[in-house]
Design a protein around this nucleic acid. Structure first.
Lengths: 217, 217
DNA sequence: TAATTATTGTGAATGAATTCACATTAATTT
DNA sequence: AAATTAATGTGAATTCATTCACAATAATTA
């Protein structure tokens, strides 16, 4: 039985678990049986202490003097992240971003299966997009329930996002990945994450602009 | 003249500047002249103190008793983030993700102009994608220099990413947004940011899986 | 124009995340 | 089988980020 988690795990730790998971996939492919926190940290530009601390929140998976067993640790992290199962995902809004994500291999590889697509554009509704028929967003609520969708990827224009989001919440969905550049309101028990690729570019532009930071005052 | 920044600004603060920037665009559209830290925080689910502290790293833009002037603060944040200019961007790898991002409106709106597209697929090279001819990745290095590209968006498969990244660095590019799910090695003076949309989904799957965290040990 | 109200800007206090440092323990070598 | 080496797991120390709390000050009201 998976041990329950007692402390609040920080977002950074959760994020790094995904990074470890990817590193371990690579290590497994390269034929490693074990990996030390030192080596794992080096590969991912972290510190060994951080790797060990992160993992220690969930148990002790390593062997002193040797390191962590690659296959086993990967499997344990998959369990922790909930990747040892399939997730039914729906995508709402089949524009540029949405349509690209439908065929993003990395999703399916981790068990995120895009089951339904919704749009409000009559020209798109009924058409087949990468093997999935695009449904009318007007029928979204009932279809999300019927198909037991647990995660929704929201890729509608900013102006429509809150209204659509409300419907998703009413359908009982508890996890939403929002690509619209607006701050959405959801109840406390709904997990909302915002993704905005322009913001990452802005971070780069900040770094380039403020490159030589100088002490003076 | 823009004041130089004296302390190291945290990534979270930089990220929130982008959030404030978007909020201010909305407020301007809605006709607000001024906004208090209290109201801005409420809209973005932050605390008023955090808003004020973040802004205070860069100067004092507000008026006591009144708040911040919307138009002016937006303009100041644009300057800080380096959004008061155009950036020449190239995209390397025109697969699913790459081709979607080319027409992602939010980029152009913030001044990130995609000037060049590269791929190694002979069927794609020479073809016109949303008004831009896809070039042979073999010519990338010289073309990045000639076109004064300062930011590269890297959307090639993981297996090719490090090799392509090395070439980008050799071309003198100092900012890379990497979508490949691998940890890339770059020199210290190159800004590398990793974006991985599957990781966000994994965060959601973690939250759903570990929903009722229980204290016990 | 004095009193009141609203809100900033910021040191100080608190809280959270990271790193240190070392006792512990398993593997390997001699 | 003892000695040595390597690496974990984790409290304690440190560093970093957030929040508190209030003096300062501008706007508004009386």
């Amino acid at each position: 039985m998976a041990r329950r988690i007692s402390r609040k795990i920080s977002n950074s730790t959760i994020h790094r678990l995904s990074i470890y998971y990817r590193a371990l996939m690579g290590l497994e492919r390269e034929g490693y049986d074990t990996i030390s926190s030192k080596e794992l940290a080096k590969r991912e530009k972290l510190t060994p202490a951080q790797v060990r601390k992160d993992l220690s929140f969930f148990g002790s998976f390593g062997t002193r003097g040797l390191g962590y067993p690659v296959k086993e640790l990967k499997q344990r992290i998959a369990e922790i992240l909930g990747l040892n199962r399939l997730w039914n995902v729906a995508m709402v809004g089949v524009g540029n971003v949405g349509s690209a994500l439908v065929s993003y291999k990395e999703f399916a590889r981790q068990g995120f299966i895009i089951k339904l697509l919704f749009d409000n554009d009559q020209r798109k509704i009924g058409s087949n997009h990468k093997g999935i028929i695009i449904s009318d967003i007007a029928n979204m609520k009932s279809q999300l329930k019927e198909n037991e969708i647990t995660i929704v990827i929201l890729t509608v224009p900013a102006s429509a996002a809150q209204k659509v989001c409300d419907d998703i919440v009413e359908a009982g969905v508890k996890a939403i990945l929002n690509f619209a550049p607006v701050s959405l309101k959801v109840p406390d028990d709904v997990n909302l994450l915002n993704e905005n690729m322009a913001i990452e570019l802005e971070h780069l532009s900040f770094s380039l602009t403020n490159r030589n930071m100088v002490m003076f005052d």
